[in-house]
Design a protein around this nucleic acid. Sequence first.
DNA 1: ATGCGTTTTTGGATTGATCTAAATCTAGAA
DNA 2: TTCTAGATTTAGATCAATCCAAAAACGCAT
Lengths: 357, 357
Amino acid sequence: MTDAFHDAGPRRDSSSVTLQDIAAHAGVSRSTVSLVLRESPLVAERTRERVRHSIKALGYVYNRGAAALRASRTSTLGVVVYDIANPFFGAMVAGIDAALNREGYVSFLANSEDSPDRQQRFLERMREHRVDGILLCPAQGTDPSLIETLQHWNLPCVQVLRHVGSLPFDYAGTDFRLGVSLAIDHLVEQGHRRIAFIGGHAEHSATQERWQGYREVLAQHGLDYQRLLRSTVTRRDGFEAIRHLLKEHPAPTAVVCHNDMVAFGAMLGLQRLGLTPGQDCAVIGTDDVEEAALSAPALTSIATHPYAIGQEAARLALRRIKNPNGAREQVVLSPQLRVRESCGASAHCGEVLLPVS
Amino acid sequence: MTDAFHDAGPRRDSSSVTLQDIAAHAGVSRSTVSLVLRESPLVAERTRERVRHSIKALGYVYNRGAAALRASRTSTLGVVVYDIANPFFGAMVAGIDAALNREGYVSFLANSEDSPDRQQRFLERMREHRVDGILLCPAQGTDPSLIETLQHWNLPCVQVLRHVGSLPFDYAGTDFRLGVSLAIDHLVEQGHRRIAFIGGHAEHSATQERWQGYREVLAQHGLDYQRLLRSTVTRRDGFEAIRHLLKEHPAPTAVVCHNDMVAFGAMLGLQRLGLTPGQDCAVIGTDDVEEAALSAPALTSIATHPYAIGQEAARLALRRIKNPNGAREQVVLSPQLRVRESCGASAHCGEVLLPVS
DNA sequence: ATGCGTTTTTGGATTGATCTAAATCTAGAA
DNA sequence: TTCTAGATTTAGATCAATCCAAAAACGCAT
């Protein structure tokens, strides 16, 4: 069929230089070259120089696969998110990438599309590739026993943003409860008494934390109006939810949303009803994605710092790999409230609202 | 320092089962087990069953690292993008992921942050990991010789979206020239005669194609107004560009933007000047990100289908890996114009404008 | 020159798979 | 029963590194 000779191409692949070749060139043994490559202090300075020279001269390329086989460490991590097209996860992955890069690690990325099956298949593949650890944003409906399974596999796993299974486990995320509390405190201060919450499904820890925060903080303020709309978390959901809510009696005067997408939908819904977000009804989102500052009106949002979460999660994973039996850690960052027009803050001029990025 | 005994933990790692163990359990040789794993037709059905049974019984985990060492194929790809936080690339990566998954491939992802140095470091690491190929969105300022270098490294590389170096090379992207042409044709049809273009830097192929399209199509329509503003491609740039343009005499009546971010900025700029996008000045973006349909007013945009581009790029890479010396291919998808309010289309009711996702 | 304690260096085994070519086992024909 | 072509199976080498324990080289005092 195909011409094997041509297909193979010239096999003068420079990457076929091995430790053996360098050893011969430098007049030392394979072992010594290996030590030089790993920066061992055992090797004498003169020898080290000579070997380094040979490595350059022959254009040697380190074979991590071979090294991993013997040393059983691959400098490799698996990362599973459920929606890479979401800018929040984009920023998070950027944070992970930056933190890993610094340590010479490299990561496999998979997009589970919130399917436990896809997630499972990927994790199995990661095991076959002998990754040193996993960063996992569990897909919706993930069986809690997955975390145990990974443990049996001897695969360190840091959960990110959401968590399943029971403590103790490694986790990096944000304090959703605090976020909701900041938002409600602010709204109450502004005189709001009927505050609704839109979005989320009870299965996630991330949703439960928000809802719990919502209920507790209302109680703290002694407010008895409570309205919690569960839904998926797209713009459409926000759009429909707000229309629904405003038909009720009494209607809320403010809504806190599961994420910024829902909040954008809610604002659009208000506008289609001829109402002005921030005046007729306050809207607060969660995440503070880039768009939040730039919508019209600008969206007040609970900033959850995805880049920082990614960094923390990656660092925690590296710590766990170094020390597999150390105490499990939960790194929970504090969100911040970014007050803008959508909850009644006065409109600023455009320049102030435009971030540099 | 640390307690080595505890740190190491119980080493009854189930993944230490090897071909050897299965061979013993099933009463065959290592080679036979290997053949079964690779679905070779050489093995007799009865034997195959027996081996399969042993594999399950012992909880064997395939070691791809070891296999790769011998077979010199890793089923692994390196993916380099320059801004993973950009939703466009998020969608593209999702497309890549889906296409690779189907073939049992898995991908390393790196975010070059548009830095040739970071990009270079990552590519070198990929070489050490012996990836079978690379998907590269070249960072701004990438030396064109990089493509040759990769060829010397014997590393198949598909460029995506942007390209450097000279033909022939493998490439997957969109027809930016056609996109601009669709936009301008539409604007001209609507009666516009002064159409500006905002954004881009001459270094990229992707920008050059847009600009060339802009100039050529204006010429085709016999228009002599031509105004091309180079800039980076953020909202801020769009915001500032439109303010600048509207001070000129004559001012443009329509602008086509390098991407949707710039277009959003331009719309915001118009609004801050008290003008209405689509009425006082038409605005068209590029990419058709999810937000485009949902902004107020909804943004007309040239849809570039990032998910499809990702899929095509991944498939092309797999083809090239199978046949390294085959003819180089350029897969160029056709964009489509999504007409919405920002270029004067009448406003629809909210429901119609809300996509399901 | 000899002995002794460090430094350095090294050979051989090991990691877990694949590849090759040769060894077996069939079943049907002579 | 023997032979043979085709179907199965296998031993041993190999891929490119690391690990380990032992060997060699070295400096210095005796």
